[in-house]
Design a binder for these strands. Sequence first.
DNA 1: TTATCCCTTCCTAACGGTCGTTAGTTAATA
DNA 2: TATTAACTAACGACCGTTAGGAAGGGATAA
Lengths: 173, 173
Amino acid sequence: MKETIKQAAASLFAEYGYAGTSLAQISEKVGIKKPSIYAHYKSKEQLFECVFQDAFNEEMNRVEQAGHLYNLLESYLFLYSEDPLFRCFLASSFFPPDFLKERILRQYEAYLHALERKVKLLLKPAENLEDAAVMYTIIVDSLLVELCYGTRERSEKRLEVAWRIYKQSFMKG
Amino acid sequence: MKETIKQAAASLFAEYGYAGTSLAQISEKVGIKKPSIYAHYKSKEQLFECVFQDAFNEEMNRVEQAGHLYNLLESYLFLYSEDPLFRCFLASSFFPPDFLKERILRQYEAYLHALERKVKLLLKPAENLEDAAVMYTIIVDSLLVELCYGTRERSEKRLEVAWRIYKQSFMKG
DNA sequence: TTATCCCTTCCTAACGGTCGTTAGTTAATA
DNA sequence: TATTAACTAACGACCGTTAGGAAGGGATAA
């Protein structure tokens, strides 16, 4: 049940944001009454905190276990359309509620650092490894943005063009 | 006064989103009582609509009057830190309220198209003009994201790296 | 010039509704 | 028997919004 609530909350937070989502909506989606939520979470803030932390950890693990740079990029495409928790991670990073703003910004920074580390690890040593890492995060962010309010089609186009340029710039060898 | 309200609303909507901003906050920032807003706007929705439309039009004009691709990129950096209306345009595009979602998505798409048109106009004819246009919007979006929740410093780094790669890929001639 | 009227813009008071939350109870489980 | 997780009822706070009135300015007519 605790997990069910978390999932329902995740997809609602992802779509309407923290302020735009009410406990009434969440409980209705789960199929229980509003006060029942308090048997599992002591406040709306704490519920959101749990949801976000889960989302963040899961996404962080995914990056750290990635084996190929292109596959990682490509995975964002279906992840966005399939995984509410991931969408929640995205939306919360783009638009964090006030009471968690600082922590979320800190964690998103850690996320970008993890991406850069991954690039430096997987890419053949090159003189411009630093550029390659920055450029990779640029592509990731732009892909995420496009996923948020563009079409799937445009996202795929972006991925294709970006990867072609990226390869050409950093993987000539 | 109508203009004053709009500005106050813009900076609050930019920071807290539509759902996260109350008319009480707006009126307090302006220095009037909450119901006085209704002398100028007939509802919170209409107020937001005006603010967003202003923000969008202003930003669209800016793009259409741009003369250099690099300058346009660079302008986003200070624009974000100086112009609440621009921040509101950004935040609203990233996280539109439900009642305007469709229109906002449509307009953001128009915005990206305007960017692509600008690239094709300003760039020397090349065989991969289409790629250059897509890549430019990638850079813009990633820059905007970084501005939203990164540091100014990181944004500048991104701009520098992205532009170097961009020039090298599309402006060799 | 003065008096009248209208219109705009602010105000106070209050509305119904929804918010997050708490208290207190009941039913089931271990 | 003690604990957990669901419920109903209700709380105070805040939400967007409306009603109704006061103050001021501008135009018009005496």
